[in-house]
């Protein structure tokens, strides 16, 4: 029994294969490039399985990140994964891309804060804490203005590890808000690892959590601009009328 994980939620495109019986990570590969996930994901998986001497029918479980991140990237991963799962009749597990990135800080004593730039000075983020490898979501995953987020984190009065390639854009602000409590990941810790995704999915499977359904959809963490504008307009009209 082997689990194939794939992640295209951010610039990182990652795939890994995990053996569910021997609990061994058979392989992992990730790139961190501005290259087209749509073109590369399927050939990469194809080649990766060849490298591992595996055939597609030896893959018994799948895992994918459900977002947040790049809308298009998330959809490529989710569509690919759920279509393979349906065609091969194998279970699919999903995990948040922020939780996968947070795994890089699992030995950190304090809050682990993964983040992706959501533009207009906002971030996709959340705060996690690990207790002997067990992940606890301390602040829910959300899209939030950076200054408001830093205020909340500063109020928690504990060391905070910021993870992700986008963190550098906010480094000064973070240091100003958190002072000595601000910690930063290494370049290796700043990219989400597909092996971590596989491991999180394995835990769901081993704890008998139900896999995703055919109508499984990404979790973008925010409405489209058109939808939120429409809702604003409705509320305004509701107040006026």
């Amino acid at each position: 029994m082997k689990l194939l994980s794939m992640d295209t939620s951010t610039l990182v495109m990652g795939v890994a294969v995990f053996d569910l019986e021997t609990r061994k990570m058979l392989g992992e590969m990730a790139t961190n490039l501005h290259k087209n996930h749509s073109v590369r994901l399927m050939p990469t998986i194809d080649q990766f399985l060849r490298d591992l001497d595996l055939k597609i029918d030896e893959i018994t479980h799948l895992a994918v990140t459900s977002g947040p991140g790049s809308y298009t990237g998330i959809r490529i991963g989710v569509t690919t994964a759920k279509t393979i799962a349906w065609a091969r009749r194998i279970p699919l597990y999903s995990e948040s891309s922020l939780a996968v990135l947070a795994m890089n800080g699992m030995r950190f004593d304090g809050l682990v804060v993964p983040m992706f730039d959501a533009r207009r000075h906002r971030v996709y983020t959340g705060a996690f804490q690990f207790d002997r490898g067990k992940m606890d979501e301390k602040f829910p995953q959300q899209v939030i203005a950076m200054d408001r987020w830093l205020e909340q984190l500063a109020n928690s009065n504990q060391p905070v590890l910021f993870l992700g390639d986008d963190v550098i854009r906010f480094r000064e602000e973070i240091e100003t808000a958190l002072g000595e409590n601000a910690c930063f990941g290494t370049p290796a810790e700043n990219i989400p690892r597909p092996a971590s995704l596989a491991w999180l999915a394995y835990q769901k499977w081993s704890q008998h959590e139900p896999p995703e359904h055919k109508n499984f959809a990404p979790n973008y963490l925010q409405l489209t601009e058109a939808e939120s504008n429409w809702l604003k307009k409705q509320r305004k009209e509701g107040m006026n009328g």
Partner: peptide
Amino acid sequence: SAAKALAF
């Protein structure tokens, strides 16, 4: 993406 996944 769906068609490629099916082909694969």
